[in-house]
Measured scan of single mutants.
Amino acid sequence: MDGTRTSLDIEEYSDTEVQKNQVLTLEEWQDKWVNGKTAFHQEQGHQLLKKHLDTFLKGKSGLRVFFPLCGKAVEMKWFADRGHSVVGVEISELGIQEFFTEQNLSYSEEPITEIPGTKVFKSSSGNISLYCCSIFDLPRTNIGKFDMIWDRGALVAINPGDRKCYADTMFSLLGKKFQYLLCVLSYDPTKHPGPPFYVPHAEIERLFGKICNIRCLEKVDAFEERHKSWGIDCLFEKLYLLTEK
């Protein structure tokens, strides 16, 4: 054995408090879109979701699917093309516009009456609605409950000090017999300040354990050449399924 860690023996890093005071403002996230600093976007979609999607959907149609901090995630069109209703929230209007443009979807925009100064973008087909606002303002819009949440790049982007508020927001959107698919990253948080932030299993239990059954479905090596600039040499991604207790 050469000592290389595999996707099945990932350790939890003990120094989980080192990132707790890290803060990125909404304006800084918007600047990332304006300046093209969106390496977190996956042009081909998320491979773990693609692998498990049909198993999760079980042939159902007409589900309501929520994408927190959606950006221009191509997976939104995957669900819409399968007959589901997609709702996303994203602070960057540019990111939302790029989604519709890159997916060749016509759309309209209208003000969100409950949140002055914000807009919702709706596909002409009517099954994709993307709200351009802070996720913490979203419950004011009465958008209803969801059958499924796809959380990739959301919890790991939320400032650590806001995670409890974020989890409570997610709980307010969950319908009966929900499936909450959650991706988190595992790396040494003493070497990279984030975002994306390190979210250990214990944190998921703390945030969601009282209401959800929590199961880790898969762990994969997600390290890429660009991650060397973070000062790390190891990065794993974990896919969790959260269901109603």
Rank of each mutant, 00 (worst) to 15 (best):
K37V: 12
D81F: 01
F100M: 11
C212D: 01
K50W: 07
T6M: 08
S61A: 14
F197M: 03
F121A: 03
G175I: 04
L181S: 03
R215T: 11
F223I: 15
E27N: 11
K20Q: 15
C70I: 01
G231A: 09
Q103F: 12
I143Y: 02
S123P: 00
Q19V: 05
C133P: 00
Q103G: 09
L130K: 01
K164T: 14
Q30D: 13
L155Y: 02
L26E: 09
T4Q: 07
C133V: 09
V86D: 01
E224Y: 06
K228C: 10
H84C: 08
G59T: 09
C216E: 13
R64F: 01
K60I: 06
D233V: 07
I91Y: 14
G209R: 08
L94Y: 12
V86E: 01
L138G: 00
P111S: 07
Y240P: 00
T101W: 08
F79V: 08
E244L: 12
M1V: 10
K122I: 10
E27T: 11
E109Q: 09
F146M: 03
H227M: 12
A80F: 04
H227V: 13
E205P: 03
L239G: 02
R152A: 11
M170L: 13
L49S: 07
I128N: 00
L207C: 14
I158C: 08
D221A: 09
T55G: 07
W150N: 00
S186T: 14
T169K: 05
R64E: 02
L130G: 00
E110Q: 15
G161S: 05
E17G: 14
I214S: 04
D31W: 05
I149V: 08
V74T: 07
L173S: 04
L57Y: 07
R5D: 07
K210M: 14
C234W: 13
H52R: 15
I128E: 01
L235Y: 08
M148V: 15
L69P: 04
L105T: 11
K72A: 08
Q44M: 10
K32P: 03
G161M: 14
G161Q: 14
M76T: 02
G153Y: 02
L8D: 15
P116H: 11
V86L: 01
Q22I: 13
E224L: 03
Q30V: 11
R163S: 01
I91F: 04
F67C: 04
C133M: 07
E75K: 04
L241A: 13
A39V: 08
R5G: 14
Q19G: 02
V74W: 03
C70S: 09
L207A: 05
V34A: 13
R152L: 03
V120R: 07
F66W: 00
E28I: 05
A73Q: 11
T101M: 06
R140A: 07
Y198H: 03
L53E: 07
I135R: 00
K228H: 15
P68S: 01
Q22Y: 07
L94D: 04
H192L: 07
A167Y: 04
E11P: 12
I158W: 03
K77Q: 11
F146E: 00
Y107T: 01
S123R: 01
D137G: 05
D54A: 09
D147P: 00
L24H: 07
E218Y: 12
C234P: 07
N159M: 02
S134M: 03
P195E: 07
N35V: 10
K210N: 07
G175E: 04
D54L: 07
E102P: 00
E203Y: 15
G209W: 07
E203C: 08
E11M: 03
I128C: 04
F223W: 10
K37E: 14
D9N: 08
W29D: 06
Y240I: 12
L241D: 02
R64S: 10
R82M: 06
R64N: 11
L235G: 09
F178L: 03
Y13K: 09
M170D: 01
R226Y: 12
A73Y: 04
G194Q: 03
S14K: 13
L174A: 08
L235D: 14
K177R: 11
K228T: 02
K119A: 05
F208H: 00
D151T: 00
G175C: 03
Q47I: 15
K122S: 09
W78C: 09
K145A: 06
P189R: 04
Y187I: 07
N213E: 08
S134E: 03
L235N: 11
H84Y: 04
A222G: 11
N35Q: 13
K210R: 15
P195S: 02
E75D: 06
E27A: 15
L207E: 01
T38K: 09
L173R: 03
E90L: 04
A39T: 13
P195R: 03
I91L: 07
G231I: 12
S129K: 14
P139E: 11
S61L: 15
Y187E: 04
T38G: 05
D162P: 00
G144N: 03
A167G: 08
L63S: 09
E27R: 09
A39W: 08
M1R: 12
D168L: 09
R226W: 12
K145P: 08
A202P: 14
D168P: 07
E102A: 10
S125K: 09
L49V: 05
S106E: 11
G209T: 14
S106A: 14
R226P: 07
L182Y: 01
F178V: 02
K32A: 13
G209F: 05
S14F: 04
I128D: 00
C132L: 06
T190V: 12
L207M: 14
E205D: 14
N159V: 04
V74D: 10
D162V: 09
P116N: 07
G59K: 03
R215E: 10
S85A: 12
L207Y: 10
T4S: 12
A157I: 03
M76R: 01
A80C: 12
Q103R: 06
R226M: 12
G144P: 14
E11F: 06
D9P: 14
E114A: 15
W230I: 14
T169R: 09
G161H: 13
Q103C: 07
Y131K: 00
E224W: 07
K238N: 15
G88E: 00
P111T: 10
R82N: 06
D2V: 07
S7M: 12
R5W: 14
K238R: 12
V120T: 10
K245N: 12
I211A: 15
V184A: 09
P68W: 00
R140W: 08
V87Y: 04
P189K: 03
T4L: 08
K122D: 00
G88D: 01
E225K: 10
D168R: 09
S124G: 13
M170Y: 00
P189G: 07
I128L: 06
C212S: 02
D147I: 00
S124H: 08
A73W: 04
V199S: 02
S92L: 02
D54I: 03
G3V: 12
L63K: 11
C165T: 15
T38V: 05
E205C: 08
C165N: 11
G62I: 05
Y166R: 00
D9W: 05
L69C: 11
Y131I: 12
R5I: 11
F146G: 00
H192W: 14
A167P: 00
Q97H: 12
V220C: 03
D54K: 02
P193Q: 15
A222L: 11
I214C: 15
F197V: 02
T113A: 07
R82F: 05
N127L: 11
I149W: 00
E224H: 06
K50F: 05
I149C: 11
P195V: 06
E28H: 11
A73R: 05
I91A: 02
W29G: 05
G209I: 03
G62A: 14
R226T: 05
A154H: 01
P160A: 08
Q30G: 10
K191I: 12
W78M: 06
S124W: 09
H192G: 03
I112P: 02
P111Q: 11
D233A: 15
K77P: 03
Q22S: 15
T141V: 13
A157H: 14
L235Q: 15
K37W: 09
K210A: 08
G62H: 12
N127F: 06
T118V: 13
F178S: 09
A80R: 02
W150L: 06
Y166M: 02
E203G: 04
K245C: 06
A157R: 08
W29C: 04
E224R: 06
L53V: 09
A39E: 04
L138W: 04
L63F: 11
G144W: 05
K191Q: 11
N213P: 01
G36C: 14
E102W: 04
M76P: 01
K77L: 10
L49C: 04
E224C: 15
Y13E: 11
D15R: 12
N35R: 05
I232L: 10
T190H: 15
I112G: 05
T141K: 11
I232T: 05
V220T: 15
N21W: 11
L8G: 11
T113R: 10
E43A: 12
K60H: 13
A154L: 05
F208S: 00
Q22D: 15
D151W: 00
H227Q: 07
K37T: 13
K32I: 05
L174Q: 00
D188Y: 05
R215A: 14
I149A: 05
L181T: 04
Q22M: 15
P139M: 04
T113N: 09
D9F: 10
E27C: 03
H84P: 01
K210I: 15
P139C: 02
A80L: 08
